[in-house]
Amino acid sequence: MSLLDFARGPALEWAAVVFMVGMLWRIGGLTLMLRNKVLSKDRTPEPWKGGLRTMFTRFSPAPVFRRKVAFQYIAGWVWHLGFVLVVFFFQLHIQFFKGIVGFGWPALPNGMIVAMGAVSLAVLITLLIRRMLNPVLRMISSFDDYASTVITALPFATGLMAFAHIGLAYETMLALHFLSVALLLVWFPFSKLFHVFTVLPSRYALGVKFWRKGVKV
């Protein structure tokens, strides 16, 4: 079995199985956890409104911190947007999903995808370097932060190289691309990358809590 056969076959299959089991296991476990009882009277009625507001207000920085965190926010937006568009709107990726779900959807032009992929990768590397050089960020960073960044960047790097036929032979780069995706899938449920699923619920919970206490969200 060649490296590509292994990557396209068992590696990807088992990684997807681990991803599915891990994600649903964690989501199920978290959903069924007991919540703290509310012991005080709500200072503001209808706390769900605070939850919903917080889910979306945090997509932009708080005015008071705007200047300080602008770079972080913009870089984060560029990176996340690039990630979603490249993963879900590149023709060959749509083919990949079509192979699983049985249907496809319109794609973005290759040139746009390549540009977004390159920008996203550059932003991700910049954020990684910043994390390593900034003393405060370095202090609050764990292995999970570094590993998650690198593991997320790998599919971008290998994908761009495979598409542009840079570096190793195409079949090797394609195999490495599949393997890097497999690594991402395995790492995803058990790392901070899981925030993809927890970010909105946790914001909602926080917003509800603040709202109850009368904090403006």
Binding site: G9, P10, E13, M20, L24, Q95, F96, I100, G102
Partner: peptide
């Protein structure tokens, strides 16, 4: 297509789910 997995499939993922 080369961009598709050879063994990954909906049934496997449903079972895993």
């Amino acid at each position: 297509p080369l961009s598709q997995g050879t063994e990954i499939g909906g049934k496997t993922l449903i079972a895993a789910g």
